[in-house]
Structures are given as structure tokens and as C-alpha cells.
Nucleic acid binder design. Structure first.
Lengths: 244, 244
DNA sequence: CGCCTAGTTGAGGTAAGTCAATTCACGTGG
DNA sequence: CCACGTGAATTGACTTACCTCAACTAGGCG
């Protein structure tokens, strides 16, 4: 039971809805069908008609869109505890691609199993719905950043948001976190060139705010970074009245 | 019955799921509680706990986010037939504001009525779900534009997308459409300055592609514009196997 | 050993921003 | 009826944030 309680998804959902033993057991059942994928090879999508969604158990993933001129825009990264392709199960379509950044481990979730689980425990359904809505809020926040924030602010905001998400699943703390993203991935997520990403990172490091080096993000001045980024974690945290 | 079939929402949904007379009648019932709002005054949101969503019947609306430095990013515009605040009914929260651009007429939809309607006709539920997913796809497309397209391309893409959406509800055709948006609104949606929006519009006009003048968008060279914008309407149109 | 990928840094170019002035349409009140 | 104010569009001059091209370094691995 301990192992279940510590699955990233259980941790994440548990932070917002107190899940009972029975609900944790149902969650654990969803984790039965384990699969592994290697980095680089696209995992889903581009108009595919897949019947399964996945829960990411280990590793990092990015969802991106390819534009006609060959450039790429990363819409979001997924970390352990996140769903992959949840929407493309309901609708038979997807407009963006999903690619593992590292080797990943996922649990395959069949649409029917998910619907059954929801029927058994409405609280679980509410928690998953909350998680999906949080993902959407992140996309909106991302959009606002691309449209209206300059490069350093955008970067700072991104690193803080990622830190918050990782902390929720026990993969980081206030001091920093391990992060396998390359500067090229950052560039495609933040709408910058890789060269400029490098310069921005150096700038933030020189200012004593964050250090991103050798696969680790270190917060050198957390409050300062929050101030620069105008970061308000409300859209990630809110303990709101989820269950009426 | 004719009046119902011509409501913007019915037109939109009807383009993707053939709705029966009975289903149209159920849709019509949702339109009973009519309300009017004036332009400029925020209609919902900012952490409010509203129980109602709205169907926009007439007028234009924008959903925006305010950033700390006072700048504004418009996430999306809503036109007749679109839902307002659908998500904030399910969850008791919303991260962005909703403001009418013109005087608008809406139908208030109570969460329970919606759920009842869905229970009566799964096909209607599927159609609404499809519409919600299309909205999400548009946000993703918007995000990609902000990150990776230059100003003229972004503008062209935006005007084409809007044209497609309006055509679906009978408010425009291949030649153009009426459009109450100001250049300031365009700027905040496209992540540009108002001055630059003006220059970009002049450029597109000089190139003989589109004319945006006196509240009307006129396509002077539709194929040329599509080519410039790399516009693929698949994510708006797809007749996909929505109902398995 | 040599190749490949990731990161780093410099020089110069360009898309888009800011500031500022002007025009025009409009409504409103003296 | 005209003076006035206000919001939108327009245009010019100048600035800047970010891009592109290009060269170089350092680590991992066959």
C-alpha cells in the first residue's frame, strides 16, 4: 500500500483530494499494464486513433506541434504523474505529437477501465478532472508568457512552474530539481532560439537567481526569482472547493 | 423550428453531428433564460464561483489574462454559438477574465440543465465535447503562433481562423466577414503592439491579400493568404468519426 | 582517436517595440 | 452650430530584444 501511495499520480491527486485506501487501490489497478518507451521515438498522435491513454510513471515527455516551416513549438512537458493523451481517448484525434525525452515508463489505461474507475469513485473522477483543468491553466499561462513576457521573465516563470510541479510529486524541493531538458528543448518551449536561451540562462546565473547546469536546476535566490517572474502559483495549488 | 435550427450553436454543432428534431428541441430549451450584457464590463471570473455557464447568442467576447506589468494577453475571442465559462461551471474557478467586446446576448445555462440534456441525448453531449475540444485545439494553435510565427503570418492565420469559425455559424463567407475588433484587441491577442498591428495590416493590404477596414475583413486573395499563413483548417473542420 | 551532441561566446542583422505627432469620426455640451 | 474631448487609426524616427551565422570548447562513446 505504501508503494501505491507513493506513485506520482497518487501523490499529485492526494495533494488536493484526500484519497481513501479504497480509492488508492482503484488507482493502483490502473497501473497494472506497464510499458516502456525509449527517448526520441514519437509515442502517439498525429491523427492516430488510439484507444489508450497513459499515465506517466517515470521519465520526461514533451508535447509539440510541428509548423510548416520546420520549426517546432513545444506546448507542454509532462512529468511523472501526468496523463498522456487523455483527450485523444475521448475524441479520436490529436493535433499534437507526444515524444519521450528520456526513456519512460508508463501505465496504459484503457478508456473503459478509466470510465469504470470513475463510476466507482466520483471523488477520483473529480480529482482527475481537476488535474486536467490544471493542465489547461498551464497552457493558458504559457500562452500569456509567449505573448507578453520577455525572455528572462519567461524563463524564470517556466523554471519556477516546473519546480512547483515536480515538488508536488516529490521530485524536487525549494532548493532545486534534476532536469534532463536541453537548451534546445527549452528554446522550442519558450519560443526562443537555442543561442538566446543560453544567454538568458547565463544572465540569470550571473544575477544570482538560478543556475541550470549539468542537468540540475538550482534556485540561488528563490524570492528574487519569483519577483522577477511575477510568479503566482495559485493556478497550480489552489486548494479550492473542488468537491462541493 | 426554423428559428431553432438557425441558432448559432445549433448551426455549429449541426455541422458535425446531424441533430434530430428532438435534439434541436432540447438545445432550444437551453436557450430559454436570455440575458444581455453591455460591452466593457467584465462578465465573469477572476476566482468567482459562478454556477452558470452561458451560450453566446449575439455579439463578441474576449477571454484575457492580466499580467503583473499591466499588459494583457487575450487568450481567445468568442463568437455566437460559443460557450462561455463552461469549464468554470465544473470546477469552481477560473484563471482568466471574460469581457464582452460588443453588447452581447447570452443564454444562461445552469449546470444541472446541461447535465440533464446530456443524459437525454448522448449525441448532443458528444457534439458539445467536440466543440470544447476544438476550442482547446485553437488555443494550442494560438500558442504555436505566438511562439514560432512572425507577425504577418500570425495575423494572416488569425484572420483565416476567425473567418472559418464565423462561416460555420453563418456570419461570413469566402469573401470576408464583419469584425468589430479594434487594432488594440488584435495586438493583445497576437502579442504585438498596436502600432505594429497597424503596419502589418497595411502590409497585407498592400500585398493584395486581405483588407481590414471599417469593421470588415475582406479576403482579396484567399489562396495567397492561406499559403502565407500555412493555414490548415483540419483542426477546425475535421469530420472525424466523432461518434463511434 | 575522431565523431557527435550540447553548450558557449562574439559580431552583425532585423523584426518588432517605444515615443510622438497627426488625422479622422464620433458624440456631447455650451 | 461650433468648440471640444475622446478613442481609433495612421505614419515617421529611433531603439532594442532577439535572431542568424559562425567559430570554438568540452564531454561521451564507438
Amino acid at each position: 500500500m505504501i508503494a501505491i501511495g507513493q506513485s506520482p499520480l497518487a501523490r499529485k491527486l492526494g495533494a488536493f483530494v484526500a484519497l481513501s485506501e479504497a480509492e488508492l487501490a482503484i488507482l493502483a489497478r490502473l497501473h497494472e499494464r506497464r510499458r516502456t518507451f525509449v527517448a526520441g521515438r514519437d509515442l502517439v498522435q498525429q491523427g492516430r486513433t488510439d484507444q489508450a491513454a497513459y499515465i506517466l510513471a517515470k521519465g520526461w515527455v514533451n508535447s509539440y506541434k510541428l509548423l510548416a516551416d520546420g520549426s517546432r513549438q513545444i506546448v507542454d512537458f509532462q512529468i511523472p504523474g501526468d496523463f498522456l493523451g487523455l483527450r485523444s481517448v475521448l475524441l479520436h484525434t490529436s493535433d499534437h505529437n507526444i515524444e519521450p525525452i528520456t526513456t519512460i515508463e508508463v501505465s496504459e489505461v484503457l478508456a473503459n477501465d478509466l470510465i469504470e474507475a470513475f463510476a466507482e469513485t466520483p471523488r477520483l473522477a473529480a480529482a482527475v478532472l481537476w488535474a486536467a483543468s490544471r493542465d489547461e491553466a498551464m497552457v493558458v499561462e504559457h500562452l500569456a508568457g509567449l505573448g507578453r513576457r520577455d525572455a528572462p521573465t519567461r524563463m524564470a516563470h517556466f523554471l519556477l512552474e516546473l519546480g512547483n510541479r515536480l515538488r508536488l510529486v516529490g521530485m524536487g524541493d525549494k532548493t532545486g530539481y534534476d532536469c534532463p531538458l536541453t537548451q534546445y528543448l527549452l528554446a522550442d518551449a519558450l519560443g526562443l532560439s537555442a543561442v538566446h536561451v543560453n544567454r538568458v540562462l547565463r544572465h540569470l546565473r550571473d544575477e544570482g537567481l538560478v543556475t541550470f547546469r549539468d542537468g540540475r536546476v538550482t534556485f540561488d535566490d528563490y524570492p528574487g526569482l519569483v519577483a522577477l517572474a511575477d510568479f503566482d502559483s495559485a493556478y497550480l495549488d489552489h486548494q479550492g472547493p473542488l468537491l462541493k
